[in-house]
Amino acid sequence: MLLIQCPYCGPRPELEFAYAGQAHVARPADPSATTPDQWTEFLYLRNNTRGIHAERWRHVRGCARFFNALRDTTTDHFLATYRAGEPMPVLPMGQKP
């Protein structure tokens, strides 16, 4: 069971969280203006990262906020968690998702 740093509540057990997919996939402002390929990409295409993955979690059984996290998929270590709407933090070693 992971220990996840909620940006509002602090470190909390994974039991309180729900995973919510890849982060920073913005819904197009005007979906009707998207090409079929753009819409397909938005709907279905996701990274399958070995390494640092930007992903969403929701502290559903806590403050109920969605937030973003950078997690290394090879070690399960979280490098950062940050509130929705905040820019992706710069990691100390310069690693990128």
Partner: peptide, 13 residues
Amino acid sequence: FGMMEDYLQTEWP
């Protein structure tokens, strides 16, 4: 409820 919160919190804050 979760879907509604998702859109409110992250798409249309």
